[in-house]
Design a protein around this nucleic acid. Structure first.
Lengths: 151, 151
DNA sequence: TATATTTGTGTCGTGCACGATATTATCTTA
DNA sequence: TAAGATAATATCGTGCACGACACAAATATA
């Protein structure tokens, strides 16, 4: 493959499908999450807190590749809905600790069925494991290469 | 792999990386496109018009998986910047034909270097063609499965 | 040919994303 | 220990994305 064809492949045939697929998948979650009054980014934050509660804003941002200028309003919305509290750390007054409320913790059970629903919608039985694993690896490689800021 | 592990793989280890990678890649384009006073979605619209000029709003939306409620304001912004015109079709007054201006056509040359820059940033020489092809195929499969509305 | 339906575009409101910048707290270091 | 640097969070403005809905033009149908 010559340089130009390779360039077009990566640019138009890779970057755009990535953008399109991401939006289509997010749209797949929407109706499921709407039942819990959540958006997809809000769901991602809760996944982290369900795994381990009491994280700082920046900790959450590091995992989701999001800055505080995105997270602060999002967390405030989750707080307004009674899912979590935001409290300044006692040791370091700069840090804000995000903690689930009882309602936030309880939501975990109602969200339990979501992964299976997504698998079904994407067509889990049709996709073979080998292909998925390779796909996941390439995605991971891409994120690793781009996720640490422009070197 | 049991059903639960497979579900978690698809949900958290596939959907989230897709979302993260898409945003990271878009961020990669940002500085290059900023030189042309463009955003990534605006660039995608121009790519389509450079390929074939004079498309309707819905035609563009079909290709980009975007609705008119997203495209109309975006096209108006491109129009305000003098890149294109929006004119009602004479045969069918419902349709709006989008046409490049001379400035919009000229921008194509200035955008010519973008794919190569992206390839370099992603690390073109390191990624092997086989892996990229498989990745692209899986992405295409995913979009095919999700892109025609919830069956 | 009226009436109903579909089609193409648009407006409105909400919630991300993100660059630029501000603010306050902590840490460094001269 | 005072001054500067750094870190953590937040505000503001812009531009997507998208659901819900409005509306006029075109088409289908009774």
């Amino acid at each position: 493959m010559n340089e130009d064809a390779s360039a077009l492949l990566l640019d138009n045939q890779l970057c755009f499908p990535l953008y399109a697929a991401s939006r289509l998948v997010t749209k797949l979650y929407a109706p499921l999450l709407a039942d819990l009054d959540l958006t997809y980014p809000q769901y991602l934050v809760l996944l982290l807190l369900w795994e381990r509660d009491g994280r700082t804003v920046t900790e959450i941002g590091d995992r989701l590749y999001l800055e505080t200028n995105t997270l602060t309003p999002l967390l405030k919305r989750l707080q307004r809905k009674g899912m979590l509290r935001r409290e300044r750390s006692a040791e370091d007054e700069r840090k804000v600790i995000v903690r689930l409320t009882a309602a936030g913790r309880d939501l975990r059970e109602r969200a339990h069925c979501i992964p299976a629903s997504i698998v079904e919608a994407v067509g889990g039985e049709a996709a073979d494991t080998e292909q998925l694993e390779a796909f996941r690896r390439t995605l991971g490689l891409l994120i690793d290469r781009l996720g640490r800021g422009p070197a």
